[in-house]
């Protein structure tokens, strides 16, 4: 119940956006079954939104600890390159997935160590990998666009299961699994505690260092999944462009999800909805037929409106207005009673 209330603003925003796009593009909500798979703008959004959605899951945890992970876009490039390279080397699907995920874990361990043990500020610590990581990815691809043809791998980009696109499934399942893990175990609360007050949490016996490293590893793993999806989608690894700027979309998704950059309380569901909102804006602008040069401006405008509407200040004013109205009503009743006597 409270969980539903938490994501109400995001749900409302999404509904409003869908209504808006439908105005311009009436077929927006139409879903057809073609060759046993569901096809339509909505399915397209679910599929295209997968990378940012996956990144947002990990980013939510990092931000909950008062951190930030700027390296996820780059990690996508690295892990995508590793996956493509492994396939071309003939390690098979299992090997490729394992190595890509391992690369994601290593990226996370690197970030986590810099932040939790060495004590570098997260924004700086992850900037190191963000800027240097594409070089690593280029080393893996030897500077080329490394293409492959492997149906098993391609499944993660363009396959489908029970009619649903594989990337959408992967994204949804990851979000549900992580959210459940957080709330069914004590991880969620411990992460929030560390994010709000690391010193106090450590004094209470919380293993803050390990938790911090763990969230960066989780973020690396999510980036690896996103990297696999991106590589599988184009059947190749592009070290220069894979995941480019997606860290910013992921952060935006978390923020639209109403999670504070100051750490603490977090909601994975809300972040994932945030990612959906971003993708709906992106796709919606295209479908509505605006010239593509307007895309970024319209997107920026919409995001601004969404953030303003969700800002706590506005909520505060709203609360104050309601209280004032209530006080006026009470006073009116009092005077009514007095004059009645």
């Amino acid at each position: 119940m409270t969980a539903l209330r938490r994501v109400t603003p995001q749900l409302l925003t999404l509904a409003a956006l869908v209504a808006l796009v439908t105005l311009f593009f009436p077929d927006f909500l139409r879903i057809e079954v073609v060759n046993g798979r569901l096809v339509g703008p909505i399915m397209d959004i679910l599929k295209r939104g997968a990378p940012v959605g996956l990144l947002a899951v990990g980013m939510t945890l990092v931000i909950a600890t008062r951190g930030i992970d700027l390296s996820v876009g780059t990690t996508m490039a690295i892990t995508g390159a590793v996956a493509a390279w492994s396939i071309t080397q003939g390690y098979g699907l299992g090997g490729a997935l394992a190595l890509a995920l391992l690369a994601g874990v290593l990226a996370g361990l690197w970030n986590g160590t810099l932040v939790a043990i060495i004590g570098i500020q997260p924004i700086v610590a992850t900037l190191i990998l963000m800027t240097s990581g594409r070089g690593i990815a280029q080393l893996v691809t030897e500077g080329r666009i490394l293409t492959f043809s492997h149906d098993g791998m391609a499944f993660f980009g363009s396959g489908d299961l029970l009619g649903i696109p594989a990337p959408a499934l992967l994204w949804g399942l990851t979000a549900v699994a992580v959210a459940l893990l957080m709330r069914r175990s004590a991880l969620g609360m411990l992460i929030e505690a560390v994010g709000v007050n690391r010193a106090a949490s450590a004094l209470a016996g919380v293993n803050a260092t390990v938790l911090l490293i763990a969230v960066y590893v989780a973020s690396g793993l999510c980036a690896a999944l996103a990297g696999i999806v991106a590589t599988a989608d184009i059947r190749g690894a592009d070290a220069n462009n894979a995941g480019l700027w997606l860290e910013l979309d992921a952060i935006l998704a978390v923020v639209i999800g109403g999670n504070s950059l100051l750490g603490g309380r977090f909601s994975i569901a809300a972040s994932v909805l945030g990612a959906l909102i971003i993708q709906t804006v992106d796709t919606g602008i295209l479908l509505a037929g605006f010239p593509s040069e307007y895309n970024l401006v319209i997107k920026a405008g919409l995001v601004l409106v969404i953030l303003v509407l969700q800002s706590p200040n506005l909520a505060h004013h709203w609360y104050a207005l309601r209280r004032a109205a209530q006080a006026r009503r009470e006073r009116a009743m009092d005077t009514a009673k007095e004059t009645g006597q």
Partner: peptide, 29 residues
Amino acid sequence: KEDGIVADLSVRENIALALQARRGWARPV
């Protein structure tokens, strides 16, 4: 303020925090 309370968390969670840390993350109170 600096070493004691975890401001955003509830009274309930603040009381349970040390207990939870001792039990480990996998066994929520």
